[in-house]
Simulated scan of single mutants.
Amino acid sequence: MGTARKYAIRLGEERSWTVYLHRQVHKALGRLLNGLPDGGRISHTALRQQLAGTNLPMRHTAEILAALDLLDEDRATTAREWIERRTAELPGSFAADVRGWLLWLLDGDARTRPRAMGTLHSYFGSVRPIVERWSEHRIQLREITPQDVTDAVVDLRGSQYTATLASLRSLFRYAKKSRRIFTNPLRGIRVGRRPPGPVMPMSDEEIRHVQTTAQAPAARLAVALAAVHAARGEAIRALLLDDLDFRQDRITIGGNSQPMGSLTRAALRSWLTERRTRWPHTLNRHVLVSRQTTNGTSPVSAYFLKRQLTLHGVSLDRIRADRVFGEALATGADPLHLTAIFDLSETTAVKYATLARQLLNEPTGQEPGRAT
């Protein structure tokens, strides 16, 4: 125990830890190591279980235990359990194909490096709904045709299209390598960002899905920032506490100061209350923080928002586009106005304004869609 604490003090001095972080790390080490017999080790799973819900720093503690050879790395077992559980939910022969693929990603081989669990989660989240649709008219992976792939991604745009196609390419690369398929249906399909398709207002069904899915305070805040201020994901992650001015009812996003509004203000207060409750002593100045960033100064990762929203079918890009398009319809399709309030490029503003003008000029009796 004494050795671990001395190492923690030296590591903290090298990395300029705060007094609070030093104290929390020592507390975590005490919780884990008190009563541990000489020569004993603690598993990574046990570490997570004992520190869960305590706000004690798991990552820093695990790093110290690993450096002192006191940590038993058993996460591979946990990962395999996750793979077995999730692939068992897939239909028919597809389950075995996807299971083999995920295990290959986890372990790697002589020519392929192992992938992190976050990558497995992301890839599986992209592939699962497609596999479930394929199972309605196909029995196994080797029956999938290039047309099936094209149909699966035809409605996707931007980063969602790129991520999904990259996941499918990985799946079929494994299937070809392991001789589960004869020909690769993705051959000739280029993985690249597809230009955004025609922007249309969100349907009532899409809005209901967002409302029912975004329940956590962090998710509701991200949706509010996209829906009210047309904020991009990177701008949401970069938002600082210093960018909030509740007294003047202003918020600065991406360097652009805007009125905060009641919806944003309510979402911010809800999230900031949870933030103070969970991490009352964090020095991180970013509005959004997570267990991984609360003891540092960096923003949350892109996967933080993806886990909260994208993997559940909610696209911030779609919400943001709906907000810009709604503003274009409400203000007479003026590209200069869109550029001023949303900090859009001239090309993007003209694109929205042109489409809005087309819909505004449609004959009465045709429904152009619902503006927000």
Rank of each mutant, 00 (worst) to 15 (best):
V289K: 09
A353V: 05
A231T: 03
A95G: 02
P37D: 10
Y20C: 02
V324W: 06
L359E: 13
S257M: 12
S43A: 06
H229L: 11
L241I: 15
Q258H: 08
R86V: 12
I253P: 03
R85I: 00
A66E: 13
L355S: 13
L239Q: 10
R31E: 13
L171Q: 05
A224P: 01
N256H: 15
H26V: 00
S257H: 01
V350A: 11
Q248S: 13
L283K: 12
W104I: 00
D74P: 10
T45I: 08
D155Y: 13
F342E: 07
A96Q: 13
R173S: 08
E143R: 09
T252I: 11
E206T: 11
A330L: 12
A219G: 08
S16H: 13
R193C: 00
L70W: 12
L239Y: 14
L70V: 04
I341R: 12
L225E: 04
S345M: 10
I130H: 02
F94P: 02
N284G: 03
L344H: 10
L171Y: 12
Q308F: 11
D151W: 12
L359D: 14
G118D: 14
A88L: 09
D38C: 00
Y352R: 07
I42C: 02
I236Y: 07
V324E: 05
M58Q: 15
E346G: 02
M117C: 02
I251M: 05
A231F: 08
E274G: 00
H22R: 10
T310P: 01
A152P: 07
P129C: 03
Q358R: 15
S159T: 05
V350Q: 15
H44V: 09
R138K: 08
V300W: 06
F182L: 15
L156V: 03
L338K: 05
H137M: 00
L103S: 02
T213Q: 04
D334T: 00
L65A: 00
E89C: 01
A62Q: 02
V199N: 04
R285W: 13
F304I: 02
L21P: 01
L186S: 06
M202Y: 01
T164K: 11
L239P: 01
A226M: 05
G365K: 14
T213E: 01
W17H: 03
L221F: 11
S167F: 03
L11K: 08
T348Q: 14
T273L: 08
N34H: 12
R318N: 04
A67Y: 10
E73V: 09
L329D: 03
V131P: 02
V98L: 03
T273N: 06
L272H: 10
A110L: 12
H121I: 04
E346P: 00
I9M: 03
A175M: 04
V154A: 10
L263R: 12
G233K: 10
D245L: 08
V154N: 05
D74E: 03
G313H: 07
F124M: 07
L268A: 07
R265S: 05
D242W: 13
G188L: 07
W104S: 07
R285C: 01
H209E: 04
G255H: 12
F342K: 07
R323I: 02
L70F: 13
S126D: 14
V314P: 01
R115F: 11
Q292V: 01
T18F: 01
Q292S: 09
A96C: 01
L51N: 06
S178C: 00
N184R: 03
R31V: 15
G12S: 00
P114K: 06
I251Y: 10
L288N: 09
A227L: 14
L309P: 04
T252L: 07
Y174Q: 03
